[in-house]
Amino acid sequence: MRIFDPHIHMTSRTTDDYQAMHAAGVRAVVEPAFWLGQPRTSPASFLDYFDSLLGWEPFRAAQYGIAHHCTLALNPKEANDPRCLPVLDELPRYLVKDQVVAVGEIGYDSMTPAEDTALAAQLQLAADHQLPALVHTPHRDKLAGLRRTLDVVRESALPTDRVLVDHLNETTVKEAKDSGCWLGFSVYPDTKMDEERMVAILRTYGPEQVLVNSAADWGRSDPLKTRKVGDLMLAEGFGEDDVDRVLWRNPVAFYGLSGRLDLDIAATEATHEGNSILRGGA
């Protein structure tokens, strides 16, 4: 099983995780820029973080045969702190980098005017840089947050088929699907989605434009949730092609919209192991 985790915060994970992920079949990840748990107080702190996502973290991933790309943005939560807002002025020089495959995570946290402004500005940045956008949907007041998110997306210069709305669940999947956006689901040990509900949603809504991620970070989370969803899909009667579509080809197609995906590490790994990891996908 070849796996592309389209949303995981490897900065917060150990090399043991990288090893276990590789053993489970993970050959590519996208790490969205997000909140680090401790609020930042200056743009410089963001820039060091972005540099790490473009330098050290891909190097670490490569040690374990995993291709690493990132999405960069001012996240919704910290968009509310005026001390952090100058990051928006620095983003253009970062969004041209080779390993940046989307603008993200953007979206809503508390649905404030400051978040409105940051979301709209960054959707425009995505359009300006020919990048798709990864849009986080809020933890609190989720359905209202999704609707407001979709309204802002529709008003933006970015077509909905270049937008991935993430952290969806049973209450938001239908409206998200009807919008034409790509559909992201984060599978967690306690919150967000779990494997069983994920498989049920796939049965109801089909695998088209669906991406499953672990969103593993510094909180209680599990970087192997992607594999567990794949295993349960097979156990519940989905075919290997469906699993490959959800766990590999869909993320390759979405982030491939950037024209910047380089899955060479995964390809080398495939050669080493004698299977065709890129078959039909890249």
Binding site: R93, V96, D98, G259, D262
Partner: peptide, 18 residues
């Protein structure tokens, strides 16, 4: 801050291959 030639520098990987 991002002159044309520095933009080219940034995108060399996807234009020429890594």
């Amino acid at each position: 801050p991002i002159s044309v030639w520095e933009l080219r520098l940034a995108e060399a990987g996807r234009r020429c291959g890594p």
